[in-house]
Amino acid sequence: MSTLFTALPAAAGALTDAGQTSTAEAVLFWTLGPLMVLAALGLLLARKAVHAALAVIFIMISLAFMYVAQGAEFLGVVQVVVYTGAVMMLFLFVLMLVGVDRSDSLVETIRGQRWVGVLAGLGLGVVLAGVVGRATYGPPVGLVDANAPSNPEAVAYLIFGRHVLAMEVVGALLVTAALGALVLTHRGRLTAKVGQRERAERRLRDGGHPVSLPAPGVYARHNAMDVPALLPDGSPLDSSVPRVLRVRGQEADAREYAARIDRVLAGGWAVGAGTFTSDDEYRGGPGGAVAGGVVMRDPAAGPDAPVDGTDAPTHDEEDGR
């Protein structure tokens, strides 16, 4: 590929005095030309809007190659920067929101629209053929003269010299269009804007939580939204469970999980391994706790209340270390 790319322009010569292009440029044209026609057909026939946009991008970049091959390197590169890089990107921005699975519907919404379209297309073709066929070209000056002293400078002389009025008018038109869009979409505010800062201040004034709510309890063997976090004294913190779960009554009992950790810390992990809190031998039956099972603390007894039966550290003390 690289060989082709480098050898191709090297063999190319300048535009001859007779106005003929070189062989290399002809090869470039006849390679890119059919591909561009295929891409243009793809634009018409593609079912998905993004595929059509891709075809347009391909044509734009190929056109840039052609411009550069004809000595208009500034035009070629600026075409990619402005049209491919900005305008087409904005198009894609809107098209992308349509989604991958959607494709254009081919149902005719306006009766006879298709035939009108075909007729108008044919008419445009006839006009174009007439104009292009009858056009006459002046004698070629040669690219050296056209591009003197360099391509960007020559373009600059044309734009800001001979065609400066047209440029300014187009610029004014574009600015007007942008301002018009701004004015049309502008909405006057009745009240002051309520931003993040104002909302935070109002929340504090109303006595709300200053920062985000505490995260739900996360334990080594059960990591879930429905388990409340525990306060330092071991009591569950209701606001740490999402409100929806609380309303539905799907909140888990924090003491089960706290107790399980206590049991693990006490060395009873081997008994309960692979069991669930719903298992009876794990929780202990109505007759009391089984050996090595759950060691429950009474949350009402306060943080300093001894854990009955063991001296093992509680999970709270573990956390506090």
Binding site: T6, P9, A10, A11, A12, G13, A14, L15, S22, A24, E25, V68, A69, Q70, G71, E73, L143, V144, N147, A148, S150, N151
Partner: peptide, 11 residues
């Protein structure tokens, strides 16, 4: 390389 080869004075 294109302008070198095709455009001559463009560089």
């Amino acid at each position: 390389a294109l302008p070198t080869a095709v455009g001559d004075g463009a560089v």
